[in-house]
Design a protein around this nucleic acid. Sequence first.
DNA 1: ATACTAATGCGACATATTCGCATTTAAAAT
DNA 2: ATTTTAAATGCGAATATGTCGCATTAGTAT
Lengths: 124, 124
Amino acid sequence: MKRRNTPTKEAVLAVFASTDKAMSQDVIEQKINIDINRATIYRVLNRFCDDGILHKVVAEDGKQYFALCKKCNENEKPLHHFHFRCIKCETIECLPSEVSFSIPDAYLIENVNCVLTGRCQECS
Amino acid sequence: MKRRNTPTKEAVLAVFASTDKAMSQDVIEQKINIDINRATIYRVLNRFCDDGILHKVVAEDGKQYFALCKKCNENEKPLHHFHFRCIKCETIECLPSEVSFSIPDAYLIENVNCVLTGRCQECS
DNA sequence: ATACTAATGCGACATATTCGCATTTAAAAT
DNA sequence: ATTTTAAATGCGAATATGTCGCATTAGTAT
């Protein structure tokens, strides 16, 4: 199944090009000028995740947030980083701090989801 | 508002006493022999969190999981630890590995939510 | 035994995400 | 340029998780 170029994909990518924050579906929908169905946005976002263009984090509010993979596609192994969610300005940013942990080899790690919550520099 | 002892609270605590895993509301409800309303279970769980008896993590499936605080009430500052969610046996365990990160002082951290996902020792 | 109010049950509500299916449309094939 | 194909979309419904209001029940102190 080859991917096709559509106005929807371009519009979504344009939103991510304008910021380095992670965003939820509803915020993305607000920032897009054209009218795109909610389910379609989710599908586009998930496809981008499959293709390594975006990555997804789930915050402690239970919602999914998507952000551009800056380093994800350069290396084979994505380096997992922390995310910070500000409860005041309600944004999520990717932190440079890398996630490190020790766990027995018998565990197979498929995903890492680390989110810190609080107030960011501007809002504290 | 003083807390009262109720059969519901005892039943929920009994479930946690039987395992060291983190559990979601529906699993807890299954493990309880008596019939307790869903909303009530959530209220009991959240109250236990407020009292430092349980702690809550949100996994990348967007669901809330609750686990006994073994070390949480001993120290003033809770030491945040990683959690591991197995996609096969669908359990979440608290890992001994502590979460450490570096972030500018201007950030106010109110919560730490770190969950690794994959296959546990038994399921890998 | 009585009063006070925390705790519960019930139903409704809110929100986030997914799914099926008919339709549209990008892109390959002719 | 036209036809073909299957990927992408829109729409509505379905699912799931968690919360809330409110009337009722039931601990606990007096």
